[in-house]
C-alpha cells in the first residue's frame, strides 16, 4: 500500500439532472411569452388620428398614444411664462390638434413623425403629457451655413 487514499471520487457524479434544464426552459418560455404578449399589444404601439376619431366619444379621456406626422405650418409655441406647444397630428386622412406643456427634443420639426401620449378632451383637443419624436430612416448633411438645431422648439433661450 504505497498509494494514498483516493483524493476524489472516481468520476464526479452527474449532478444537476434534467430538473434544472426543465426549469431553465420554463424561464425562457416565460420570458418569451411576456415579451411576445407585449408585442401583441405593441401592434398598436400608437393609434392614428383616423383610428382615434373612429372611436367617437369613447375615445375622450382615455390615455392613448397617438402617432402621425406633424402637419406643416401647424406648430405654434408660447413660451412667455408657461411653455405651451400646439400642433396638428395628421395621417393625411384625419387630423387632431395637440396641446402640450412638455417640450419635445430638438429633433422635433414640422413634417416629422411624432407619437404623443395623453388623452382627447371634450373639445376634441389632444392633451399630451409627452411628445416623442419619431424620426425616420433618412439622414442628411446640414445645408451649408445652417446649424442642425436651428429650427428646434425647445423652451426659450
Amino acid at each position: 500500500m504505497t498509494v494514498a487514499a483516493p483524493p476524489e471520487p472516481i468520476l464526479p457524479p452527474r449532478r444537476r439532472p434534467w430538473g434544472i434544464v426543465v426549469l431553465v426552459a420554463v424561464v425562457i418560455v416565460v420570458i418569451g411569452f411576456l415579451a411576445f404578449s407585449s408585442i401583441g399589444s405593441a401592434l398598436v404601439y400608437y393609434v392614428t388620428p383616423s383610428e382615434l376619431l373612429e372611436r367617437g366619444n369613447a375615445a375622450v379621456g382615455e390615455t392613448v398614444r397617438l402617432g402621425g406626422l406633424v402637419e406643416q405650418g401647424s406648430v405654434e409655441q408660447r413660451d412667455s411664462e408657461d411653455y405651451e406647444l400646439s400642433f396638428v397630428i395628421t395621417d393625411s386622412e384625419a387630423s387632431i390638434p395637440v396641446v402640450t406643456t412638455s417640450a419635445p427634443t430638438a429633433s422635433f420639426r414640422e413634417g416629422t413623425g411624432a407619437v404623443v401620449e395623453g388623452s382627447l378632451d371634450e373639445q376634441g383637443v389632444f392633451r399630451a403629457t409627452q411628445v416623442i419624436v419619431k424620426h425616420d430612416e433618412n439622414y442628411e448633411v446640414p445645408a451649408s451655413g445652417t446649424v442642425p438645431s436651428d429650427n428646434s422648439y425647445l423652451p426659450g433661450e
Partner: peptide, 27 residues
Amino acid sequence: RPVWGVFWQWEDPRLTTTALLLALYVG
C-alpha cells in the same frame, strides 16, 4: 433620449424583441 425624448419604450417591437434576444442568449 436626445432624439426621441425617451431612453426606452417597452411597447416598441424592435426594442422588445432585442431585449428578448439578449435574455435568450444570456439564458
